[in-house]
Amino acid sequence: MKHYFIVIALLLSSTTGSADTLFVTLEKDNAVAIVDGETGQLLNTVPVGQRPRGVAFGKDKTLLYIATSDDDTIQILDTQTLKVVGALPSGDDPELFKIHPNGQWLYVSNEDGNRVTVIDLSNQKAIAEIAVGVEPEGIAISGDGKWVANTSETTNMVHWIDPAEQKVKANTLVDPRPRAAEFSIDGESLFVSSEIAGSLSRLDVASKQVVDTMFFEIAGVDKALVQPVGVLAHPNNEMLFVALGPANRVAVVDIKTMSVIKYLLVGQRVWNLAFSPDMQRLYTTNGVSNDISIIELADLKVTKSVRVGPYPWGLAVK
């Protein structure tokens, strides 16, 4: 029993210490894995609702929101006690979501319902349901909070939502099966990955038009297996990281030239990406190999992979 307390104390101290902590949703384990980012040590696995996918912290990072898709809700996990303390009315089959810079509005795509639901976090109520295309997926919110972009996988569009009115203001047709969307740090561009086309498009936020499209080519990898999914912009506004799914690589893209600087070999079916808060590391979830990869950002090298459990999907870091 004593040992048990010591272990718990150690775990808690490591999750509250200076090192960063990763929360990784495990789609097929109905759990969240907690990993020390610096050492790559798996600290804990916490049971949550069914089919957890999208995940993000609230403003002060004391609460973690987890889209538990098969429970049709977004669960709220207390990051200190590691207990589920509440649930949000997310609508059917919530998948990816983002929180508006105002810290109050949460935008979630309802994959089965062709909707984006807006939830007010202050009173935990759904305040708007916005009709979008078939199988809404990625959500991106511009740094200034003026635009919410949503991709729909079967309609092949980006829907531009104005948060002031919670309405769709424009639609842009993009390459087949768009997945993630990410605004550039300067807010001038929106990047959208298309899984089936194997492309990354740059949209001009002002005109809402596609201005540039790039494809990925990796020697020795069949083109059909290059399927861009997660996209993450480096705060330096120069680099973009694109997870390439079953190509098992993360592409490092030069934003200016829209060309690949380097491919990083990671685990199988790489899905989503996140930085450590100190910008030392990049983390990836690898769905098929059941692990996460840790990349040192300074020299762009993959240094570790950590087994976390069945089907790691999303991740949030604090």
Binding site: N114, A131, G133, V134, S152, T154, T155, N156, M157, H159, N171, L173
Partner: peptide, 10 residues
């Protein structure tokens, strides 16, 4: 149905 959802926008 799927086409018509897209059709709303096009």
């Amino acid at each position: 149905k799927d086409n018509n959802t897209t059709g709303l926008f096009t």
